[in-house]
C-alpha cells in the first residue's frame, strides 16, 4: 500500500522574486502532480518542516507547478534562502479546489489581498483557457504598499482581457492609483450581482470585511467563495488540525461558499 504521508521529490527550476517578502518557486515534481485550481499541496524540506501552499500556476500546464510563497516563519524563511536546483518534498494535491464549472455563464468578481493573489492567479489562468464561457471577469486586488503588489507585469497583460482594480493600504511618491483597503474599491462595480459570483482569498481580516462588503452589495452567501486558511498537518482529513465546524478544511475545502460556513463560530480567527 502507498504511504500517503510520504512526499515525492520536486526540484526548484526557477525562483522569481515577486516582492521583498514573496517569491515564486517554479517546481518540477519527479512524478506529474495534476491539480485543479484552488487545490493545495504540502511542501517540505527535511529537518525544517512542511506547510500547505496553493499552486499559483495554470493547472492546464502540467510540466510546471508554481508556488508563490511569503516569508512569514520557520519553513518559509528557510525556503527563501534556497537556490535553483534544490530538491524539496511535495505531496498532494489535496482539497476541493474552485468549482469553475459552476461559474460558467456568470460574471466573476475576484478579490485578492496580499499573497492571497497566488491561488487566484491560478484561477484566472484557468478561466482564461475557457474565457468565452464566462460573462465577465473582474479583479480587485489590494496589497500593503506598491512594493508588495504581486505579478505586476502579468496584471498589465490581464487588463487587456478583464477588468482590474488595484489598491494599496499606503502609497509612495510614485503611486498614482487608489489608496485604501480592498473594500474601498468594492463599489460601483460594473457587475450584475444577481448573476455574479465572488471569489475571495487573502488574510482572515481581509476576507471578513470583504465578505461583509459583498453581502451589502447584494451578493448571496452561496455566491461568495472563500479560501479558508487553517492549521494543517496531514492534508488528508485525518490529523484533525483543520476542523472548522463539521468540516475539515483540507478535505471539505479549502474553498467554501459563505453559505456553508456562515453559522460556524469564529471562522475569521
Amino acid at each position: 500500500m502507498k504511504n500517503p504521508y510520504q512526499p515525492i521529490e520536486a526540484v526548484i527550476e526557477e525562483i522569481i522574486q515577486e516582492t521583498p517578502t514573496i517569491r515564486t518557486f517554479v517546481l518540477k515534481p519527479k512524478e506529474l502532480i495534476e491539480f485543479k485550481t484552488g487545490q493545495f499541496v504540502e511542501l517540505s524540506f527535511p529537518g525544517v518542516g512542511e506547510a500547505p501552499f496553493t499552486p499559483s500556476s495554470n493547472p492546464n500546464i502540467k510540466e510546471r507547478l508554481d508556488l508563490t510563497i511569503m516569508n512569514v516563519g520557520r519553513l518559509t524563511q528557510f525556503l527563501h534562502t534556497l537556490s535553483k536546483d534544490t530538491i524539496l518534498g511535495i505531496r498532494g494535491p489535496y482539497g476541493n479546489g474552485y468549482p469553475i464549472e459552476e461559474f460558467e455563464g456568470k460574471e466573476i468578481l475576484i478579490v485578492g489581498g496580499g499573497v492571497g493573489l497566488a491561488p487566484l492567479r491560478s484561477l484566472i489562468l484557468a478561466l482564461f483557457s475557457k474565457l468565452e464561457k464566462y460573462k465577465k471577469i473582474f479583479l480587485c486586488y489590494g496589497a500593503r504598499t506598491p512594493k508588495d503588489l504581486l505579478y505586476k507585469d502579468q496584471i498589465l497583460q490581464w487588463q487587456k482581457k478583464i477588468g482590474v482594480r488595484i489598491t494599496v493600504d499606503t502609497g509612495d511618491e510614485s503611486w498614482k492609483g487608489n489608496v485604501g483597503l480592498v473594500t474601498s474599491i468594492l463599489k460601483d462595480l460594473p457587475l450584475k450581482m444577481d448573476n455574479a459570483v465572488a471569489v475571495v482569498c487573502g488574510p482572515p481580516i481581509m476576507m471578513k470585511f470583504t465578505t461583509l462588503r459583498l453581502l451589502e452589495l447584494g451578493f448571496k452567501p452561496k455566491d461568495i467563495y472563500l479560501s479558508m486558511e487553517k492549521n494543517m498537518s496531514c492534508g488528508l482529513g485525518k490529523c484533525g488540525h483543520c476542523r472548522m465546524g463539521k468540516y475539515y478544511v483540507c478535505r471539505d475545502g479549502p474553498v467554501f461558499c459563505f453559505e456553508e460556513i456562515k453559522d460556524i463560530h469564529d471562522i475569521w480567527e
Binding site: V72, P203, P204, E229, K230, N231, I267, E269
Partner: peptide, 13 residues
C-alpha cells in the same frame, strides 16, 4: 499551538 497559523492567527487561542 494546535490551531495556530503563520502570522499569529489562532482560532483556539
Amino acid at each position: 499551538n494546535f490551531a495556530k497559523v503563520a502570522g499569529g492567527a489562532n482560532p483556539l487561542r
